[in-house]
Design a protein around this nucleic acid. Structure first.
Lengths: 186, 186, 186, 186
DNA sequence: TATGAATGAGGCTTCATTCAT
DNA sequence: AATGAATGAAGCCTCATTCAT
């Protein structure tokens, strides 16, 4: 069934530039016409490959998280000491922070799109990233995992809002110093 | 004599419920009609008090950040020891995390509204919170300030995406422990 | 293959009845909805073919003056004696005075649409008619051309305001008699 | 009853600047709010003195033609020879062409406002001017009167559309020369 | 497979008007 | 006499989507 393969390949190809579009404009401010123009096709073609705007959006998110996990597995190898792994992580995030900012935007957008009905996909995105971090950094304590994830999320969101903020690696290091001071002061 | 209405007071009154509306739906998905229905007035009335949707939105943000700063000054007093202040901060955040999540949503939305032209308001929001944290927690180092702000931002965003995540105070504490472990392992 | 529709031909077809609509109601009193209803299409279709109300209006004017010039070239041939050409002109005007009244209404309307920014189109309309008259009637003196054009404009406007006014040909002739009397009385 | 006198005086005062407003923007493009702002009152006041936009408009036209006739009677005295009277007329028009252009705009606007129902006021305006011209210039032949009126109308409209057109007096003179040439060529 | 014409609901905004004060 | 808050209809325009080709 060669037709189906082509069909899926074309769909992937159409999806590729969509993350940037949705992240930049937001779901509701981005029209199907703008998407089609950016992709160089007609709206009819878009509806030929996707069941509607929401379906296109969801498939795009699906595609994005899959490719990200693959990349993370390679760039943050698990068989390293703690400080090294954290360093690798911060470098990995620093190299891709623009892309992660896009993913976060898009996920927040989606969460609000239809309240509870969107829960499953949001959870899927979160769990994918949480598990990757957990396994690659060998963090088993749930609270520690949450805290690290919060920090990662926050750094990326903050630097997206304010590009002049300190780089990721510096922020990681500074936070550790704060922790030490507190420990001492107790 | 005109119908007795304090124009500014009425405007404040109309603004009050808008944060929740914008945060829940997003700027573009929330129509002026929906706003007016939620407020129990007509769209004409909305336009009597505001120059348009964007102006309404901006005045709402202005209002919100002012009242937040006032609250923070009271609930996180500056004349305390480091661990106490951090504890107060985490409690303050914990009590209001729903509201802060709304503000973050709304700020991210706004940033994308029209690219660069929105920069000044985004900066105003960020600087207001940064300065409040800096002065109340006596943090002078810029990188440390950025790092703490990232963490706060991240915790709130993460807990908004995943309400089952560990509470704020626990995450703060866990992060400190990670820092210690790393320090030891070096 | 797309639905077979010649885009430009359809646009012409939509434009055709618009002169009468705009002339009868005036630019601001004629809504896009009324236009679409008169044309038997939806407003969406109107916006598919035109960039907006003003663009539709301008293209309509363009279309109208082109077809008028073509008609004038045939019905008021240049290779005739002066009295004959004037007679042809008055007949030509008499046959089409309703249409010319529409064009004048529409042009006056347009001129006020937005002050100076409309100058170019108004000038284009005026110059098109002035040049046609100048060449077909072999009038080289600018003041004479202006005077004849004023008379034509005036007759049409007056007869539009007061349909019982004397016919165009008679007015032309009467004015000539006034001129003679004045000449004699000097 | 002094109140009523004051009431009428205020109404006159409000009406005065309206001709320029309506002529410049057109009936439908000029909102009651803009009128009230230009007059320095509130819309409520406008509705206190007039029964609505159309009533205000009609009373304004009424007021304008009355004051114009008075002026004409003085400036184009009837007891002069033909060429002198025509010269006086052209000067009179030249001095006030801006105002006449406003009146014409406003009359054309009104004519289209509601088709036949507006006929009486349009006729009133026309007859007022026609009779004034007829009596002051001693023109009895209806066709001659129409022709002269058309010319006057046309010169004013044309010069409003194209301010660089030849001055009124020159156009009057040029038209007479055309008439002579035609007479000779017969 | 791919087109783009067509739709009708809904977007933001302005309007003429009313009425409590 | 005068205000200006309030209304709801209507303005222009864009939207996601469908469907004949």
């Amino acid at each position: 069934m060669p037709k189906i393969v082509d069909h899926d390949a074309k769909r992937e190809e159409l999806l590729e530039p969509c993350l940037a579009l949705f992240a930049t404009k937001g779901f509701h401010a981005l029209s199907m016409r703008k998407i089609s123009e950016a992709l160089g096709v007609t709206t009819g073609t878009l509806y030929h490959y996707f069941d509607g705007k929401l379906a296109l959006f969801e498939q795009m998110i699906d595609r994005v998280i899959k490719s990200d996990v693959e990349a993370a597995l390679q760039e943050v190898p698990a068989d390293q000491s703690w400080p090294i792994k954290l360093l690798n992580l911060s470098r990995y995030l620093g190299q891709r922070e623009g892309r992660f900012a896009q993913i976060i935007h898009v996920t927040l957008d989606y969460k609000r799109y239809e309240g509870e009905s969107s829960k499953s996909l949001t959870d899927k995105v979160l769990n994918t990233y949480l598990q990757t971090i957990s396994s690659q950094l060998s963090i088993e304590d749930r609270t520690q995992l949450d805290a690290l994830f919060s920090l990662i999320l926050g750094v990326i969101v903050y630097r997206d809002l304010n590009p002049e903020a300190s780089p990721i690696e510096q922020q990681f290091w500074a936070l550790q110093k704060i922790g030490l001071e507190i420990t001492k002061s107790i």
